[in-house]
Design a protein around this nucleic acid. Structure first.
Lengths: 141, 141
DNA sequence: CGCAATTGAGTTGTGCGCAACTGATGTGTG
DNA sequence: CACACATCAGTTGCGCACAACTCAATTGCG
């Protein structure tokens, strides 16, 4: 019988450790391309949903401008995207992929299979995990 | 039917987002005591397993000295622990809780219940999640 | 309209997390 | 014993995260 107060501590630590282990799987795959995992998330968001604003990226990734601004500046410096002041609303900044940024979608397309291979779960377990994690995160809304 | 390559991307993002959401639940609870989540993990390790070395803490928490050294220095400055060069092996540094550090165990004992309340899972789901996360992390060993 | 309140992006400061490195200490092998 | 090698902790540098803040642009309300 486990002390119930130990359960949350364990699940929180496992969450913390698993998340870092996960980005650790991505790191050697992304490092040759000069990318980090949060940078990949920005690219995925732009690949899937097209050009958007800093604000909307923040909503998609649950990150604020304090994190995104310097990150986007690095991706711009690397030539993967452009940042343009909005014409309708001068406060916003439109984020758009360049040819280079779009091209990374193909260049990096081999990565998901490597991750699936490293994280050896069945499809049902993937769905189960996604559901449980979503509920953990949902608790904070 | 979901594109299988999207599954890993989803689970990795959910892992990343849930982990940050989790430390976000801890933050307001720890902030009044001047602590962070990684600092709490160090305290938990010391409460549960007693005095140890930097090296062993690193093994328990999957962190290296580059992360632990400054973190431990901050906990020492806060008066929660002491760092002493090992007598047998002069390379090692023994980490021991002070009265203050031991006292925090009671002071912070209300936190696990708050977390369990925020993360509203059944005991079975907790175990399931811990198991799945452990297998994700285990893939990296 | 006029002006307070809100919003969007960026900056600053702090604390991780990790790679790469340093320097001191210990170990093993010839 | 001597010397190459490994190990431990710490430092440096960089990129997140996030709080707190600034500043400009926009909105809304009297």
């Amino acid at each position: 019988m486990v002390n119930p107060s130990a359960l949350e501590q364990m699940v929180c630590f496992q969450l913390y450790a698993a998340s870092r282990a996960m980005t650790g799987i991505y790191r050697p795959l992304l490092e040759p391309h000069g990318l980090t995992y949060p940078q990949l998330l920005v690219l995925v968001a732009l690949w899937d949903n097209g050009p958007t604003t800093v604000r909307d990226l923040g909503h998609q990734l649950h990150l604020d401008s304090g994190t995104l601004s310097p990150l986007l500046k690095r991706l711009e410096t690397a030539g993967h995207l452009t940042r343009t002041r909005g014409s309708a609303d001068e406060r916003t900044v439109l984020i758009e992929l360049t040819t280079s940024g779009l091209g990374l979608r193909d260049t990096l397309s081999y990565i998901p299979a490597r991750i699936a291979c490293a994280v050896d779960l069945t499809e049902a377990e993937f769905h189960q995990l996604i559901d449980l994690l979503g509920r953990v995160r949902g608790a904070t809304h």
